[in-house]
């Protein structure tokens, strides 16, 4: 338990004063991948919370463990070599990791649902989209086919599929990528979930379609009050849609804050690196400010701070002790020099 403090601070960070029970509370979650008989940690000691009707953005490079984290929350890791090794996931008053498979399935697609990255391949090509939306409704609400179809039609209208009453009987291959992602969203909303997890929902789409889909998600959140976890590697997308942001690096949250504060202060050198690597729109640049080096391999994590080999501010201290997260109101930064660095332009 290296980050006992991080946990306590972590739970305060998202809801600094409220006594409300959070909708989702992840405590010290550790995930490992089974590799040649060995368990290799991929997500280490992760803690965060999501309140009802909030939007949490999780940002990070590929391989930072963000997708595995939400797959673990959702319960979709079974059958893969990845498993949760310790920790708790409280959802709506229950520890999901203690539930039986059947109890978990009763929550999947009902209280909690997920939108995936690839709209082109995430729908079953042999069933009509209406039937695919109805499947979850009928499974969880035990209603008649007719009622489910009415509901599916409403959902398609809600996600703004034009001519929904015709489209409901179309197959996925007859729709464009953006429309398929809308169908995915309709499917995820089918049973009015309390929590909607969107794993890079716009990455595979054209930029213009991306904006429409993000707007749709934001609109749905306003209408329904569903809490959302939005995963992205695109800070711009996160800034547009989320109240809270968690930045992941090497299976840890290195910085988390309200979106506003995060962009104001940029406490962690990694977050700063991410933002500086976005090319400016209004000036000519010869070089992109890329972060030097690469994400370390999981079996060769550095001693001390996991970002230290790539960090321009690293000191001897960083190479010895893992940093303890520092609290600054709602702002947690896993860096020894967070106080000194924040707000300072580099």
């Amino acid at each position: 338990m290296r980050y006992v403090t991080a946990l306590t601070l972590g739970s305060r960070m998202i809801s600094p004063v409220s006594d409300n029970q959070p909708l989702l509370r992840v405590e010290n979650l550790c995930i490992a991948i089974q590799n040649a008989g060995q368990l290799q940690p991929v997500v280490r000691d992760l803690s965060f919370e999501v309140q009802a009707s909030q939007t949490l953005g999780i940002v990070g490079e590929s391989g930072s463990g963000k997708s595995l984290t939400v797959l673990a929350i959702m319960g979709l890791l079974s059958g893969s070599p990845v498993r949760v090794t310790s920790g708790k996931v409280w959802f709506d008053g229950k520890d999901l990791l203690q539930l039986s498979d059947a109890e978990r399935r009763s929550i999947m697609g009902d209280g909690m649902s997920m939108i995936f990255q690839e709209p082109m391949t995430s729908l079953n090509p042999v069933y009509k989209i209406g039937d695919q939306i109805m499947e979850g409704i009928r499974h969880h609400q035990h209603c008649s086919a007719k009622e489910a179809r009415t509901r599916a039609l409403q959902l398609l209208e809600k996600v703004k599929i034009p001519d929904a009453s015709t489209r409901i009987d179309h197959y996925p291959h007859q729709l464009s990528g953006g429309q398929r992602q809308r169908v995915m969203i309709a499917m995820a909303l089918a049973c009015d979930p309390l929590l909607l997890i969107a794993d890079e929902p716009t990455t595979a789409l054209d930029v213009t379609v991306q904006k429409e889909v993000l707007d749709l998600i934001a609109e749905i959140q306003q209408d329904t009050g569903t809490a959302i976890i939005l995963i992205s590697h695109d800070l711009g997308v996160i800034a547009q849609t989320c109240n809270f942001v968690a930045v992941m690096y090497c299976g840890e949250i290195v910085e988390s804050s309200t979106t506003e504060k995060l962009f104001q202060r940029l406490g962690h050198p990694y977050t700063r690196g991410l933002i500086e690597s976005i090319p400016p729109l209004h000036s000519d640049v010869e070089w992109l400010n890329a972060i030097p080096g690469q994400v370390p391999a999981l079996n060769a994590l550095p001693v001390g701070c996991s970002y230290q080999p790539r960090c321009s501010h690293a000191q001897a201290q960083c190479r010895q002790n893992p940093p303890v997260a520092l609290l600054d109101d709602e702002h947690i930064v896993r860096c020894h020099f967070a106080q000194q660095l924040q707000g300072r332009a580099s």
Binding site: M108, S113, E118, N124, V126, G136, H140
Partner: peptide
């Protein structure tokens, strides 16, 4: 991917195996 979508609806594994995997 679509099999993962089917599982995310909370369907019974046997239903996923027959309706979504075997059918395709």
């Amino acid at each position: 991917d679509h099999v993962r979508t089917a599982r995310s609806k909370g369907l019974h594994p046997a239903r996923v195996a027959i309706k979504h995997v075997f059918r395709n």
